[in-house]
Design a protein around this nucleic acid. Structure first.
Lengths: 153, 153
DNA sequence: TCGAAAGGGTTACATTATAACATTACTTGC
DNA sequence: GCAAGTAATGTTATAATGTAACCCTTTCGA
């Protein structure tokens, strides 16, 4: 995982945005939910549910449902995404700003970049339309190697 | 799941193609592998590993590794794909003819269509290139409703 | 025909996720 | 403020998915 300038800023921003979104939506951003989101954001990789559970330690007498419920809430409110190909979760880097987004997953450093570029979404929509298929949700996960890792190899 | 004209033809074709591919590649298309592929092809939906296991019944004294090994072999040789968002497997409808393919998954009838249109793959590659990301494998799964199901609703 | 390599049987276990029900905490209308 | 309803969490148990490891059998090539 490559360093960002000051990762605390990422975390703080994510939490602040989450606060705001939950307030707007009239949903409760409880301590557990906040803490899980914070843990998900500990770095720019993806986090496994049971790792989060372990990192929660004794806090909140956490057990699997504790974590899965928090993750479910965070997903419903667009604050985290599940990476199906990894069974893992990442913080959403620009909540509310997109419908279809996708992920560049570096298998060397584990960093996950979230992208929402139009052309890809458009190509998908057009292809689906051609087959008269009505898309509801798109999962697009691209595994490979990020720029820095290619250099460092 | 919508009927195809004569589904036995699909199955026979898939098995015959698999025979041929395995022969060309010098890999062994054993009874178990063939039987698992046949079960995967029982319809045009996706099949869960433990369902396959159950459908194998007593045959081959099947246990989880039996099925997972067969599925691994079939995936390696491009004969089935895993649908990550469902933890399930589908037969590949045109083995060897593609690198990047993707799936239209109807959540009403469970049918999975496999697609390999250029424009989507291109859009993905361009987007990745822009970020200097080197893709190795792409997972694209589109959940929604197929044409027939939209009509029938 | 022998030895290496691939395939498969078997057991056990690891990982991921959820059901179901009890309890606590919030919130809303009075 | 308080009762009643709803949302959130605690807790236990278990379901669903997937793999490690070890050993035996089959196949294939020298």
């Amino acid at each position: 995982m490559h360093l960002c300038h000051e990762h605390e800023v990422c975390v703080e921003t994510a939490l602040a945005t989450a606060d705001q979104i939950c307030e707007e939506r009239g949903v409760r951003f409880t301590d557990i939910r906040r803490r899980v989101l914070e843990l998900v954001w500990e770095n720019h990789g993806s986090a496994k549910a049971y790792d989060l559970l372990e990192r929660l330690g004794g806090e909140y007498s956490a057990k699997p449902p504790t974590v899965y419920r928090a993750l479910e809430f965070l997903q419903e409110n667009g604050l985290v995404h599940k990476i199906n190909s990894l069974n893992a979760y990442v913080g959403c880097s620009h909540p509310l700003q997109h419908k279809d987004c996708f992920f560049l997953i570096c298998s060397r450093c584990n960093e996950v970049q979230e992208c929402c570029t139009e052309p890809v979404a458009n190509a998908v929509w057009q292809m689906a339309a051609k087959r008269h298929f009505k898309p509801r949700h798109t999962t697009l996960e691209i595994e490979g190697q990020c720029q820095q890792c290619q250099v460092q190899n």
